[in-house]
Lab assay of single mutants.
Amino acid sequence: CHSECLGNCSQPDDPTKCVACRNFYLDGRCVETCPPPYYHFQDWRCVNFSFCQDLHHKCKNSRRQGCHQYVIHNNKCIPECPSGYTMNSSNLLCTPCLGPCPKVCHLLEGEKTIDSVTSAQELRGCTVINGSLIINIRGGNNLAAELEANLGLIEEISGYLKIRRSYALVSLSFFRKLRLIRGETLEIGNYSFYALDNQNLRQLWDWSKHNLTITQGKLFFHYNPKLCLSEIHKMEEVSGTKGRQERNDIALKTNGDQASCENELLKFSYIRTSFDKILLRWEPYWPPDFRDLLGFMLFYKEAPYQNVTEFDGQDACGSNSWTVVDIDPPLRSNDPKSQNHPGWLMRGLKPWTQYAIFVKTLVTFSDERRTYGAKSDIIYVQTDATNPSVPLDPISVSNSSSQIILKWKPPSDPNGNITHYLVFWERQAEDSELFELDYCLKGLKLPSRTWSPPFESEDSQKHNQSEYEDSAGECCSCPKTDSQILKELEESSFRKTFEDYLHNVVFVPRKT
């Protein structure tokens, strides 16, 4: 048989008469490798580009789960590009990614509803959504962080984005990388972005840091009482949809009607710091009717980097990364020049730590249904340095008659930039024990000054392991946590139920 035959053949030295091919099969003959313009397919066939392209389009058009959109890589027609490569849609070739590779997620039936953290986790790592997304989240724990972890990498949506009755959302900033909504599939009414009845939605994105392009379709905003109209108009300008909307697409009466839409800028007039305090004062603000001013709200939190936005980490279910302080308005003076500047002394802060701070007014709604208010920009203030805590785990070892090696770990709280350490030492008198000992005694162990690591005695271990207080009263049991108490109650309830079950099964009433 021919060298490319495997198993047997019907005619000697003829690659077209093989029972099976050793390498690849091409047009009725066995070959060692697939010549151009053919590609290896499933490690035994040679196919042309049209064959591989037909497989790709067949799966793409069917949208069946589990099928493969075949691509070409290293002269092979394979189910998908290997790690580190992405497909070129024009020629199906796998090309190296520039940075992290995109991950295209194809949605069944063309859309997916995100109504819980669990459903959001199914899209973790996706960068391109081939379909439409509907966000409908009523509640949950730590929602802002969970949504950002699972949806934060999405850069492109081919269909539309719909935010509907998501009472738990305060902001859409968890879509931190969303840059493009194509609108290839539109919501009824030709809408590519749809926001309806979101009672706590206050911000779409921080438009000073976020760009969003909507290729096709219109915007729809109705019944978002805490979303200011200025935020919607800003989205029109940034996304390129200005002029597409009709009169009733953006409701003037049901958007922002319960919001404090600040239209003035508060400026800080005085800032002073110490290692654990920050004193702030800002310019006074009074609405047209000074009785509408209820006070100020001061927001602050630790910020290692200057990239904080107002609604980071917030949701309507209680999660809030900001510390909020309510401040009463100052006494009002008739003389504008003698107006008191409101302020606040922030206490209990960490030394040498940068804080993000902003302040906003708290006002009631005027009778004319106009909203007044003022808010400052987010500023960054760093507390002063102070003395560091003591170095940890000092170790001293003498390696000769004239040297001592000293080692330690950095302090747990540096409280500033540590530039150097101060080492103090003092000579001590020799131990009298060394002169009084009889060095001729056998088995004498000389006193040693070398360091030995501390260890816990058996008594201390027994005390720590004991669940009861000892007789001397030195140790006591740790208080039980809520989960331990709940577990004990469940076990007790189970024992009672099981005992009742045994009584009912074992003891049967005697027939009379």
Rank of each mutant, 00 (worst) to 15 (best):
L108S: 11
L212H: 01
V238K: 15
V359H: 01
N142Y: 03
I114F: 02
L161V: 08
W286P: 05
E122W: 11
F268W: 09
K253S: 09
N142V: 07
C228A: 04
A120I: 06
L212M: 06
Q314L: 14
G183K: 01
F268S: 01
L107E: 04
Q339G: 14
P304L: 15
S338Q: 09
N141L: 10
N387H: 14
S389Y: 04
L107S: 09
S401D: 05
T383L: 02
L151W: 03
V381R: 14
N255K: 04
S171R: 08
L298P: 00
E302D: 09
Q199L: 11
D292Y: 07
T113M: 07
P329H: 02
F311K: 08
L252H: 06
G131E: 01
I278S: 00
S333H: 06
S269I: 15
E310F: 04
R272F: 15
A149E: 09
L153A: 13
K407M: 14
L294P: 08
L201Q: 02
L345A: 02
Q121A: 06
V381C: 02
R202Y: 11
I214H: 02
S274V: 03
R202V: 12
K375Y: 08
T215Y: 07
I327P: 01
K360M: 04
I181N: 00
V324F: 09
L133V: 12
R164L: 15
L153N: 11
K234W: 07
E146L: 04
E148G: 06
Y167C: 14
Q258N: 03
Q306R: 12
G256M: 06
E156P: 00
V363F: 06
Y355M: 02
A251L: 07
F220K: 14
K375T: 12
G217K: 03
G240Y: 15
W352A: 12
D206N: 09
F296Q: 14
R347G: 02
K226F: 07
V390I: 14
F175M: 06
F299W: 14
R369V: 10
R176S: 13
V381Q: 14
D367V: 15
F311R: 12
P411W: 01
P411N: 01
A149W: 14
V324Q: 04
S274W: 04
P329F: 03
